[in-house]
Write a protein that binds this DNA or RNA. Structure first.
Lengths: 346, 346
DNA sequence: TTGAAAGCGTTACCAA
DNA sequence: TTGGTAACGCTTTCAA
């Protein structure tokens, strides 16, 4: 194809700053400054150079800039998945966070390099920062294992983590008030008359363990007749939750009348298992989820849940990361949660 | 903090290839080759240099490599959202595609730079390729407007688009067999006894218009008593679908007994609207979605749908992009779909 | 207000 | 099998 060949050629002689400077009859310094709107350059010169650049469809070679300035304007976002779990990149909540981060980063002139913890071996600081692929790292999820994250922090790389801000850490953690969220969820079920409330999820997982604490606190505070804490452990996927509930009921009968789930996906898995046994939601069993994913209200009954404000969280994370670029210390931050009452609870 | 200061310093004197060469008492060329396992270098030299690098925690400066080799090993993935719509980055299907692309790219040694069409103005080829931010572009979604995409293609930039492969285009399009998928969906409802089948979605949207064709073909072939095609236009979000169905029933009553939805989200929105009016699914109205998002089977009734094989699609897209890196022409490709029968249809 | 020139850290050609 | 060296395209200091 003639067209392609021509373009390939034109690509080889790609216009550079030097080329543009020659065309304009000025030095590269001047062009460089002019294109950055540097007031050192006379206004007219600036404008004429800018329009020349536009005319020739010039664009700066970003790789060269990076090398020279030692700045990439890229932030690596790492999905820190627990590898022995099916909670994958398709988890709607995680992806929502990615989306919101992308917007927040773009607004600040940064780009988002997406990675998951399974690639890039374990030395993230080296891989992303030292090799100047990115200026900073945002890790989504503390998971059960924070070793990789600790390593990045120790290496002194700009880092912000989405996780549980109450967990003591040497790095900045931004996250929801998981304890309070779960407390509110549990209390809401108690207020609705639930007496035997099940905590469904994985209490060993960082954020989830805080959620367990909130649950536990509410249960103790309620002073219920049989106030024992009921825990059913399962991976944070709907499938795992479905199976866990299914088996539990099969073996022990309906030994609970409320479920505090560690995520909406978990809640929805449980919901399905219960509905298949014609257990009435919310009358026989009330359910509260966590996250408020887009689909939560589409279900029948619409899912009561704890909403995590990911938009705000993303903005905060980016702000805290930028602070580190300027040499300042970043702080952990707690993002407000909110109980969204729908139909899966009374 | 002493720690931080120390590290900042150590960062300034970051070990370079030249430094490592000096340490080893060899030239930079040798180190460079050794680290790439170039057989030109004697095996022992290679190994000792590699272990030295590991010992000193050395990592190549990627920006410098890029500048020198004119290769970024990055692919820009652009979510081509329709801006007057709410189909946002939180659409679970789009995000699933992103996730699968990420994995497919990683497997080939490429990284994924995530962008959406709202940023990076309109000149993508310039912004990503000419400025050497990425080696190629994958666009997700043709939307209603393919101007931006055409422009990239004309600029001769390596490009693959996720969309409808039947749409005539000057670039490689990978996508599902939308026409067939929708045909199967419609036929399945007809087989189940539906007589007045509604097409719910936006027929002007590239992929959706192919789905409309498949629907239309099935309806015509069925030779139903009142075989008129029934179309209800709405944005491809669950909310829009919910409202559209709600209003339609309010104004015209239940004038259909089957719904072919353009996406699962649309189907689920419709499902909710119907259930709220106590319309029985699938007996009063059968519903078939499109996509097979993770949540489809969690709903009650579990959603019958057309599954799009995004994993395979992602692999194909990446393969077609890599072909272009080697100067070969890329081809459009059709990915097989599959009717997944669940409970929302008979 | 503008220009000259050094240098960012690699890679790869050519020579040894 | 290894080394010297130019070059990738930009930014920025210093000088004019």
């Amino acid at each position: 194809m003639y067209f392609k060949v021509y373009l390939a050629l034109s690509n080889e002689n790609k216009l550079t700053l030097a080329g543009l400077a020659k065309l304009a009859g000025v030095s590269t310094s001047t062009v460089s400054r002019a294109l950055k709107d540097n007031p050192l350059i006379k206004k007219e010169t600036r404008e004429s150079l800018q329009s020349l650049a536009k005319q020739y469809n010039f664009s700066l070679n970003h790789a060269a800039s990076r090398l020279r300035t030692q700045k990439t304007n890229v932030v690596a976002v790492i999905l820190n998945l627990v590898d022995d779990t099916d909670q994958s990149i398709s988890d709607p909540f995680l992806l929502k966070v990615v989306g919101d981060l992308n917007q927040a980063l773009n607004q600040q002139g940064y780009e988002l390099l997406l990675s998951n913890s399974l690639m890039a071996n374990e030395d993230w600081a080296n891989y992303f920062i030292s090799s100047s692929r990115a200026d900073g790292i945002i890790v989504i999820g503390q998971g059960k294992n924070t070793d990789n994250v600790e390593k990045v922090a120790k290496a002194g790389a700009p880092l912000v983590v989405w996780g549980d801000p109450k967990v003591e850490a040497s790095y900045a953690v931004v996250g929801s008030n998981n304890d309070l969220g779960s407390y509110l969820a549990t209390q809401h079920l108690i207020d609705g008359g639930c007496k035997r409330i099940l905590f469904l999820g994985d209490p060993e997982h960082a954020e989830m363990s805080e959620r367990y604490k909130g649950y536990s606190r509410a249960i103790k505070g309620a002073n219920l007749a049989d106030s024992a804490e009921l825990t059913l452990s399962c991976d944070i996927t709907s499938k795992a939750a479905y199976e866990a509930i299914d088996v539990a009921i099969l073996e022990q009968g309906l030994f609970f009348d409320g479920i505090v789930a560690t995520s909406d996906m978990v809640a929805l898995g449980a919901l399905k298992a219960l509905k298949e046994r014609y257990i009435n939601i919310p009358n026989d069993v009330g359910i509260v989820g966590f996250d408020d994913i887009a689909m939560a209200e589409l279900f029948h009954p619409a899912l009561t849940t704890i909403k995590q404000d990911t938009k705000t969280a993303a903005k905060i994370m980016v702000a805290q990361l930028l602070k580190q670029f300027n040499g300042d210390n970043a702080d952990s931050a707690v993002v407000d949660i909110e109980l969204i009452k729908r139909k899966s609870s009374r």
